[in-house]
């Protein structure tokens, strides 16, 4: 301890007056920091440290060749762009589907809300692989949906719902929907319904109440849900491989291949770092776009 003059335990005794004033001013902050220390250590060891090790691996040998390849090779750039686009489509689809579901859950009377939430959670108890195969049965050329449509004469030839991007989007949206529903449900449940009545009393129509009051107030949930779904989408692996018929390549597949098949961890780390950066950028842009609407939060 004696070697650390600024450590909290000794500072007040020995520090000059100016510093002591500083210390008093910051004491509360420091105390809460001390309280948060175990959590910070936890986060550091479990998340930050592996991340730093990963980044270190990507520049192993003091070279940036891995990054050069990841950022200039058409293959990796295209897969990265495809991945980000698919993640964006999935986020949008989840948002459009989850919003009304979360809304009805938030206003449903107790028992119905419980049942509804159980239904939302139900898929979590089924393996993602099983659910993916389930979609194959539903969406295939001879799947239940195409059969029904063909038999009813609505279509003449099977719709291409599987083994393409459409199949990937449907499957991923299904898997990720709960991650969108719950953040939305949380903000909607907390919503002060008095505000809606107030707006209505001030002459707003139902649509205006939604657009001007309800929706903006759910934006924190929207941002949380979109972020969650987007980030999870980017790492998706088995669903795109199975429902995309091998034609939809996500960057996680390439990263996995580098690690598992070629033991090229340096390049895999560089790809991961690029993906992480791209994800963070998208998140920051999204946050900034919604910022003006969320200062109140």
């Amino acid at each position: 301890m004696t070697g650390i003059p600024d450590s909290p335990g000794t500072a007040s005794a020995r520090a000059p007056a100016g510093r002591r004033g500083w210390w008093r001013r910051h004491r509360e902050g420091a105390a809460s920091l001390a309280n948060a220390a175990p959590a910070m250590l936890f986060l550091f060891v479990l998340y930050l440290l592996p991340m730093i090790m990963l980044l270190a691996q990507s520049v192993e040998g003091g070279t940036l060749v891995h990054y050069q390849k990841a950022l200039t090779d058409g293959l990796y750039v295209q897969v990265l762009v495809d991945t980000l686009l698919i993640a964006a489509y999935v986020s949008l689809a989840c948002l459009l589907l989850a919003y009304p579901v979360a809304y009805f859950l938030s206003i449903a009377p107790g028992w119905w809300a419980t049942v509804g939430i159980i239904f939302v959670l139900l898929p979590f108890w089924t393996s993602i692989l099983v659910r993916t195969y389930g979609w194959m049965v539903l969406l295939g050329r001879n799947g239940i949906i195409n059969r029904a449509l063909l038999d009813s004469g609505l279509i003449g030839a099977p719709l291409p719902l599987l083994n393409n991007t459409a199949g990937v989007l449907i499957g991923m949206t299904h898997v990720l929907l709960p991650y969108m529903i719950f953040p939305l449900y949380a903000v909607m449940k907390r919503m002060d319904r008095g505000l809606l009545a107030a707006a209505e009393g001030m002459g707003a129509s139902g649509w205006q109440v939604f657009r001007r009051i309800y929706f903006p107030l759910t934006l924190p949930g929207v941002l949380a849900g979109v972020t969650l779904v987007y980030v999870l989408s980017i790492g998706f692996f088995i669903t795109p491989a199975l429902l995309g018929g091998g034609k939809v390549t996500m960057v996680a597949v390439l990263i996995e291949q580098q690690i598992r098949t070629f033991l090229n961890w340096g390049f895999a780390a560089a790809l991961s770092a690029v993906l992480l950066t791209a994800t963070l950028l998208v998140y920051l842009v999204l946050r900034r776009a919604l910022r003006s609407n969320m200062q109140w939060n």
Binding site: G194, A198, E200, G201, M202, G203, S205, L217, Q295, W296
Partner: peptide
């Protein structure tokens, strides 16, 4: 008539100011 059509100004218990 719905509230919107009544031309009534209202001050609410907790003010109901739109936080955003």
């Amino acid at each position: 008539a719905p509230p919107a059509k009544r031309d009534i100004g209202m001050v609410f218990q907790n003010y109901a100011l739109f936080p955003h």
